[in-house]
Write a protein that binds this DNA or RNA. Structure first.
Length: 638
DNA sequence: ATAGGGTTAG
């Protein structure tokens, strides 16, 4: 085959290749450079490997069968198509093009750094000799790399029909093609294939299957596989930890991290990223600080992934000083770092700072992306910077060519809604290019609660029901709107709707982080080991609060809340009592809530803080996973 | 000796 001319003819010469002496095909030479090249490639020092290759040519030595795989791999890793094509010329000149390892390296190189079509060409022109497992494997993983689902499976079928034997590397190439939820049944079949071929004992294939399940959201299957694996290596642990983390199962992550520490496997930066993101999700700053110490002592402190994860963790947990200090010391601030710190200031009510930082980011030449706009838009809506937010929203598409997604719309609807500009918000939704999702109409519904607009609320609710009929939060919201409007009929209507759809309100829960553990309380919970003491403490507090004049703002509201949830004592009160029992006087007690704190508890906490002279901070955990869907199942976590 | 592969942040 000829090397694609379009690539070679480009003037850029990344490798300054001289013509080389042609040696006999596949002559086994003891090229002294090869050992060094292998070393470089194995250590992922790809630039060095290519430099070394250049030096080798300059010194007059010729590349051979053992040289090409390393340098081709380096080109693939660095995505250098022109150098890759030049190497292809060298392969032909040195007569190595029929060498098995060189063929599969070439296929892989083309698939990874120029075009999978060229990879296919090499494969086809190899003729009979490509009827080998290696070449099939290389091309299949090439299709996977380029997300070519149908081509990948078609080739696999061809491979089976041609009677070419399948090995574990075939599966490593094929399984990651099934990472979309709609393809996961096929992944399950592949799992069956692995068992049939006796490949499941290899931990790399199992890791690959594990990752596939995780990405499809089939956490149960992933866990089953994980538990069945007797030789869990670092990647096994990491796959499961990040799998939980990506599916919003934060407490399971912390549990698993704990178990990993007890095993012999040492965590690496990938592990810490998953653990930190779960601390962020839970608002578990103390746990996160522990992890931070471990990161420092493991020598990973300059890893950019970890720095960003740390900034995010501290910022979301409210420790803005610490987050800022890491951010300021960062050598290279990426758009991710900026987004994390902007989001942190935004969610803790420092909208002005968030906006300043966003502008500063743009001044330093960093191009904001969609996530950066989410953080600045939500900062604007929390701080009431309505016009500023609208400017950013306009700039997003006009100046940066970024098509807003439902997330951005829900921020802007919230922005307009909080400012009382309800009709504009409604019109914005109706003008959307993309289909609005539940949170977009939900934001309007929330705004209707603030501004007591029953009519618009009914309209927004109708829309939300089309999109997300099982989300209890919206029913509660509408019910409260009716309740405030003293529309008893409406309240009953919502309740009947919920009964008909067999929906029950998720229990409100609160948690307090204590001694590196998350202590979770559901409304009316009596499962905590200290339940007796907690309830005693709470009764005392309630009596004191009554003496100070604390009561429900309005009796109807209390009844409504109780009917909606069927609950007893509110979870935040339990959490407060637990905190008072276990923490030292003078320390702050941080309570995290999954649902908005109710008016009664708000007052309760205010009065308790006067009585006991302690500082309470109640933070809204819904902010932590505002844009994630998964529910937090912390229940089993002690 | 040599390919092919699995885990990371907002």
């Amino acid at each position: 085959m000829t090397v694609p001319q379009s690539l070679v003819s480009r003037t850029t010469k990344l490798l300054n290749l001289r013509s080389t002496k042609t040696t006999g095909a596949s002559t086994v030479t003891t090229n002294p450079w090869n050992a060094h090249l292998r070393e470089m490639a194995n250590q992922r020092q790809f630039v060095h490997a290519l430099t070394l290759y250049r030096q080798m040519l300059r010194s007059g030595d010729s590349p051979d069968v053992f040289t090409f795989p390393f340098v081709l791999k380096s080109c693939a890793a660095l995505s250098l198509p022109i150098s890759g094509a030049q190497l292809h010329c060298h392969v032909i000149k040195t007569g190595c093009k029929h060498e098995p390892f060189v063929q599969s390296s070439l296929i892989s190189m083309y698939a990874r750094c120029s075009s999978v079509q060229y990879a296919r060409k090499v494969f086809d022109e190899n003729g009979e000799s490509s009827n080998r497992t290696d070449c099939y494997n290389a091309l299949i993983s090439g299709y996977t790399f380029n997300s070519r689902f149908h081509d990948g499976f078609a080739l696999f079928r061809k491979m089976r029909e041609a009677g070419v034997s399948v090995n574990s590397v075939t599966m490593l190439g094929l399984v990651p093609l099934c990472t979309l939820p709609e393809h996961w049944c096929l992944g399950l079949c592949l799992h069956g294939c692995c068992v049939k071929f006796g490949l499941d004992t290899q931990s790399s294939v199992a890791n690959c299957l594990l990752t596939m399940y995780v990405k499809c959201g089939a956490i149960d299957y992933a866990l089953e596989l994980f538990n069945a694996m007797s030789n869990k290596d670092l990647i096994t642990w990491n796959a499961m930890i990040s799998g939980y983390a990506q599916n919003g199962l934060a407490t399971q992550v912390l549990d698993l991290y704990h178990k990993m520490k007890l095993s012999d496997v040492h965590p690496d930066p990938v592990t810490f990223v998953g653990v930190l993101s779960s601390c962020t999700y839970l608002g578990a700053q103390k746990f996160g600080t522990e992890v931070d110490r471990r990161i420092q002592s493991s020598g990973f402190s300059s890893n950019p992934f970890l720095c960003n994860a740390l900034i995010n963790m501290y910022a979301r947990c409210g420790n803005l000083e610490k987050a800022r200090s890491i951010f300021d010391h960062l050598r290279e601030k990426s758009v991710v770092s900026w987004t994390a710190i902007i989001g942190g200031y935004g969610m803790h009510g420092h909208g002005e700072i968030a906006v300043q930082l966003f502008d500063e980011m743009v001044r330093t030449g960093i191009r904001p992306d969609k996530a950066a706009f989410v953080s600045v838009l939500s900062a604007c809506s929390h701080a009431g910077l309505t016009d500023k937010g609208l400017d950013y929203f306009a700039a997003m598409e006009m100046n940066y060519g970024l098509q807003p997604e439902p997330m951005h719309y829900s921020c802007v609807v919230d922005l307009l809604g909080r400012a009382g500009r309800l009709m504009e918000a409604k019109e914005l939704i109706e003008s959307m290019q993309v289909k609005p999702d539940g949170p977009v109409w939900g934001a309007l519904l929330g705004a209707c609660k603030i501004h007591k607009n029953v009519q618009l609320a009914e309209l927004a609710f109708e829309q939300v029901m089309e999109l997300d009929p099982t989300n209890i939060g919206y029913y509660v919201l509408l019910s409260n709107i009716y309740c405030e409007a003293e529309n008893l009929e409406g309240v009953l209507k919502v309740r009947a709707m919920m009964r008909k759809r067999k929906l029950k309100k998720d229990p409100g829960y609160s948690y307090v982080e204590y001694e590196g553990r998350v202590h979770l309380f559901l409304a009316g919970d009596r499962t905590h080991p200290q339940t007796e003491e907690i309830y005693r403490m709470m009764d005392d507090l309630e009596n004191l609060v009554k003496e100070l004049g604390g009561f429900y703002k309005n009796d109807r509201e209390r009844r409504n809340e109780e009917l909606m949830s069927g609950m007893g004592v509110h979870s935040e009160k339990l959490a407060i009592a637990f905190g008072l029992l276990n923490t030292r006087p003078g320390t702050e007690i941080v309570v995290i809530k999954n649902l908005r704190i109710c008016e009664n508890c708000h007052q309760f906490i205010k009065l308790v803080s006067k009585i006991v002279d302690r500082q309470f901070v109640v933070r809204d955990a819904t902010r932590f996973h505002h844009f994630k869907n998964g529910t937090c199942s912390c229940k089993d976590y002690w």
